[in-house]
Design a protein around this nucleic acid. Structure first.
Lengths: 139, 139
DNA sequence: ATACATCATTTGTATATACAAATATATTCA
DNA sequence: TGAATATATTTGTATATACAAATGATGTAT
């Protein structure tokens, strides 16, 4: 019986959704949705190099997130800048503004607060093991 | 540094979303959304005893899923029956119809196909360990 | 060069979701 | 009892998401 498989997988699913739901809740007061936060994080991860819509899309947690429209929202709030890519006019260079960077810092510390109580529940070895097991599961 | 924490948590999140997204994709040809499938599964889990909307809600993966309207859809398709609960007229008794049970079997085997390649990637011990670690993480 | 397929993004639109407000029943306690 | 509070579900509505189609730029083959 694959009862252990489905037990574990169910934990992964519900925990994954629970975390993004909680983060989403925490960001509500900033007027930022979880996908919007995700885009900001991804842009910061790009180390100040602009990213195109497709690259952001690929790094999104949510399948089929409509990155164009999410970026629209962020542009409206001056958190992000979008300009035509110089070497390929089909692409868009999307990058954080200073305002976006500053807000992201605030958002991150809010998110950090949520994670705080969980950070030390597992030892370093357990965390490594957890990550390894999930990677192995995914194949 | 909490790099190991965020590495592991990120795996949990992305894997959790990835699985529901894939399942959702697999159910598309049946005209059933992932939340609808979830409700059917939860009702089956109720061992043929009807469940009220609130109890279904609590077992949903998705926070704030609008169970009333999801049940509407399922009722329209004759997969589910909704009637007033006899001992509390505020509550609704929601239960699977035979058609719903039959479809659920089909859906389950479609979902099983998705899980198939992953089922034996981890040993029983690893699966138990994975589940234990996530539970411990959640606290 | 020019037609044709491909790629990157945006837009149209139908459906789903989030959140608040409304409705209806049940419980509590002065 | 009956007024106030709590509970269960539904509905209104604004926003978000999914999917397909449209737009516009680039690459490719003849």
């Amino acid at each position: 019986m694959s009862i252990h498989y489905f037990g574990a997988v169910n934990q992964v699913i519900t925990t994954g959704h629970w975390i993004t739901d909680q983060v989403s809740l925490g960001l509500k007061s900033f007027g930022i949705s979880e996908p919007q936060y995700n885009v900001l994080r991804i842009l910061k991860g790009g180390k100040s190099k602009p990213l195109d819509i497709g690259s952001i899309q690929m790094k999104m947690i949510q399948r089929n997130s409509n990155v164009s429209r999410i970026v629209d929202k962020l542009v409206d709030k001056d958190l992000v800048e979008r300009k035509e890519c110089s070497d390929n006019r089909r692409k868009m260079d999307v990058s954080l503004t200073q305002k976006g960077l500053d807000l992201l810092d605030e958002l991150n510390s809010r998110v950090q607060e949520f994670h705080e109580p969980m950070i030390h529940r597992l030892t370093k070895e357990e965390l490594i093991s957890l990550q390894r097991l999930i990677k192995k599961l995914k194949g």
